[in-house]
Design a protein around this nucleic acid. Structure first.
Lengths: 239, 239
DNA sequence: CCCTCACATTTGTCTAGACGTCTATACGAC
DNA sequence: GTCGTATAGACGTCTAGACAAATGTGAGGG
């Protein structure tokens, strides 16, 4: 069946096969539609996808052009993935050690982020993460007790937190607002990642507020990450 | 004139006016199209925009729902803006001081990023940025001589680099790939931003490779930023 | 040589209708 | 009561055609 998504793939293939050189103009939408034997609107849907992916540049009244492909970027910030996944994707052996797990009272900062009352019960999880045996990250996760219930008491947690929340608590994390900052040097968690006492290991702090599909606050997390191991990139567009 | 963009604004207004509560289902596309007196496809174009902005959640075979609005975020990383703009947007008085400007030979790192030959001529610009009189950023900009020509010799540069490149060199910066990292403590530029000798000021380093509309590398930049002044956020989506 | 204006080309938007696919639900069989 | 199924409602996709808006070009005038 011919769909606009198939056509998108076809055009993508044509670009990859250098059917049109970088910077060159594609045939007009009318001609391409005729070629693929679809309506112009359908073809435009395909082109729109490629435009959003940054592979084509559409100029009103002029034509559509092939853009020079941007290089692949490892660990793009736009895409939310867990620390564990990042370590595994880098081809490293991932291990972790639970430092603490249990119910505590919600602090003022957590309450403001999670949009719950200060002092209300939350489940706190702290873990050290290892890549090929070396400590590379310290994670702190805060979840409202109201949302996770007694899942962490009933079931022994291990492995992926995202997976656990999805399977055991029916909480699907869809996105997160993430702040990247340099932790203060006196921060006690930074010390946990300092291996070499001579050369100071750079540590970056990710504060993330995770939402479900409906933008309900589900999880607040602090990740201290060795910046010599984790590299964060983001593609920024001028608006 | 009724366009899908107008309809998007209308629906946005309705959501803001709490015509539908958060989580509530909107009328079906058919009914909304009838209400606005447009075709269903046109209405769908409007809804698609709102879906991409994260204000609506469309569920196939079920309906379209209002999502809880996410909070406004200052200085979102997804949107490329100059340091000067950021300072001004924060309502601060922006000043700067050129530390150096001139032609130098391209280093290996710059050459790899800008995709030019090592040793070829580049224009290097270094500036200290002030906000309300206090040093908050140190910027280093590298541009291929081939692209900017003698614009920096002919015209006295001051103010916005993006504007200068656009007006004097016909180079429109459309996007950038940005790496955020913690600079090494011994980095000499970090010292330029250390005001208080007692409490250490956190400094974050942004390495940015800027592209024009056609993804040609135009500008490579290093920005050392006081992290107690600049806060960087990014919205991440699970894929 | 430069400017202006008309025109052809190309993309942007919209329509009315058709059919496909997905989901929740109600109903019937067991 | 429970399970499977039919069905209505809702979103997903596609079409053929029309007109609007933007851009580049070439002819003509100054």
């Amino acid at each position: 069946m011919i769909t606009y998504q198939n056509i998108k793939l076809e055009i993508e293939k044509m670009i990859d096969n250098r059917l049109w050189k970088v910077g060159q103009k594609l045939p007009s939408e009318y001609e391409l539609a005729k070629y693929f034997n679809v309506s112009r609107e359908t073809l435009r849907a395909a082109i729109k996808l490629l435009e959003q992916e940054g592979k084509l540049l559409v100029k009103h009244g002029v034509g559509t052009f092939v853009i020079k492909p941007l290089p692949m970027i490892p660990s793009r910030l736009e895409f939310l993935q867990s620390i564990g996944t990042m370590i595994k994707l880098a081809g490293l052996n991932e291990e972790e050690n639970k430092e603490m797990i249990g119910e505590v009272m919600c602090t003022k900062e957590w309450a403001a982020a999670l949009n719950i009352a200060e002092g209300s019960p939350v489940v706190k999880l702290e873990r050290i993460r290892y890549a090929d045996g070396e400590a590379v990250a310290y994670s702190i996760n805060i979840m409202p007790k109201e949302l996770v219930g007694d899942a962490f008491e009933r079931v022994d947690f291990s492995g992926s937190l995202f997976g656990f929340l999805e399977n055991k608590c029916k909480l699907h994390i869809a996105r997160a607002d993430t702040e990247l900052l340099v932790p203060l040097k006196k921060d006690k968690y930074v010390a946990r990642l300092q291996i070499d006492k001579e050369e100071e290991t750079p540590v970056i702090l990710m504060k993330q507020l995770h939402y479900d599909e409906q933008n309900k606050e589900v999880l607040y997390s602090f990740d201290y990450l060795r910046n010599d191991v984790f590299n964060f990139w983001v593609r920024r567009e001028r608006k």
